[in-house]
């Protein structure tokens, strides 16, 4: 394909991506270096019958004017990155210089908002991804063995958790696990504890969110693995049977190696999607016990009084760095492959 044709065909797509992906990335990098203006204070001398009094108050008009003129705020360098809400260099330094052992470090780090969000995001990503793959694989094996007639309906039902809007899916589950909901109430009955609430304890909240994550993403792993099972090399399976391999040995030695390339693909997609976990925290109203990087950004931007652009942007930049680190193995491998077959 000639350069000219290629350019004409790809232009709309590239321009859209440039304007709304590349430029915003630049924009958040710039924004992250600024913080909101302080309020403009005016000091007036108020002299009354009982002498003079200095009074300080906010000059709302001047503040508004300043904000309008310089919406970016004032320059702050890398200050936002290092403050308590983000990397919290000073606090981390303190924690490491004086602490009462490992447990203390962890719990004090967890009190810092950025590390709290980061730890949940990472735990969520690295637990949900493998769990989804295992459950997806099992479901795929199960569906593969049922009679053809009921496969359609079974696949239909299995797809529902994946296709559902994340926010709505988590709301549906949230209402069920609510203390008044069917699952929540039943759990209270089972454990005979009327105070039991999945929302109350951080651990139970994390578990709930992770269970939701597995529920939501399992169908994706299932569908890909199921498609992979349809292309199993029958010759190899049949010769394994003739060689006397048991069912388990066949799965281990033929099926799993065949699905391995697919597994890499599934893992990649799952990690990308899980890393941005955000809606379930809103849906489950879980922010008190679990926040994620995406949620932290949302929270900054959604501030009731002020939108904290600087803070949100700094978290965004840190999140993007996280994404790049996550993708690095894939990128490096693709690059090697590409160099290998470059002609």
């Amino acid at each position: 394909m000639r350069h000219r044709d290629f350019a004409a065909f790809i232009a709309p797509s590239l321009i859209a991506m440039f304007l709304f992906i590349v430029l915003p990335v630049g924009s958040i990098m710039v924004q992250s270096l600024f913080v909101e203006h302080d309020q403009v204070l005016v000091t007036t001398k108020n002299c009354g019958p009982f002498g003079c009094k200095e009074e300080t108050r906010v000059d709302t008009q001047a503040t508004e004017k300043l904000r309008r003129e310089e919406p970016l705020g004032k320059f702050n360098g890398l200050g936002t990155y290092f403050n308590r809400a983000h990397l919290a260099i000073a606090q981390v330094g303190q924690i490491f210089s004086g602490n009462h052992g490992f447990g203390d470090i962890v719990s004090r780090l967890y009190d810092l908002p950025f590390y709290k969000a980061l730890s949940f995001t990472l735990v969520y990503t690295f637990l949900v991804t493998p769990l989804c793959m295992v459950s997806g694989f099992l479901v795929a094996l199960g569906v593969n063995a049922i009679p053809r007639m009921i496969k359609g309906p079974v696949i239909f039902l299995s797809l529902l958790p994946y296709i559902i809007t994340p926010l709505l899916g988590s709301l549906i589950l949230f209402w069920m696990i609510n203390t008044d909901g069917v699952i929540g109430a039943t759990l209270q009955l089972i454990f005979n504890d009327p105070e039991l609430s999945l929302k109350a304890s951080p651990v139970l909240t994390w578990v709930t969110l992770i269970v939701y994550g597995v529920w939501h993403m399992t169908p994706f792993a299932f569908v890909v693995f199921y498609a992979g099972l349809q292309t199993l090399p029958r010759d190899t399976i049949e010769s394994a049977m003739i060689d006397g391999a048991s069912r388990w040995e066949r799965i281990r030695n033929v099926v799993i190696p065949h699905l391995l390339p697919l597994a890499t693909f599934v893992a990649l997609i799952l990690m990308m999607d899980n890393f941005r976990v955000f809606e379930p925290i809103v849906g489950f109203s879980a922010a008190a016990n679990a926040t994620s990087l995406s949620f932290a950004i949302y929270n900054d931007l959604n501030g009731q009084t002020d939108q904290l652009f600087g803070s949100a942007s700094a978290t965004s930049v840190l999140t993007m760095i996280g994404v790049i680190i996550l993708l690095l193995p894939v990128l490096v491998r693709t690059w090697r492959d590409f160099k290998g077959r470059a002609r």
């Binding site: 709304f20 992906i21 430029l23 915003p24 990335v25 630049g26 924009s27 958040i28 924004q31 890393f275 941005r276 955000f278 990087l293 995406s294 950004i297 949302y298 900054d300 931007l301 652009f309 949100a312 942007s313 978290t315 965004s316 999140t319 993007m320 994404v323």
Partner: peptide, 8 residues
């Protein structure tokens, strides 16, 4: 994550 772009 889409929300990072929204910030921009």
């Amino acid at each position: 994550p889409h929300i990072t772009l929204v910030a921009g």
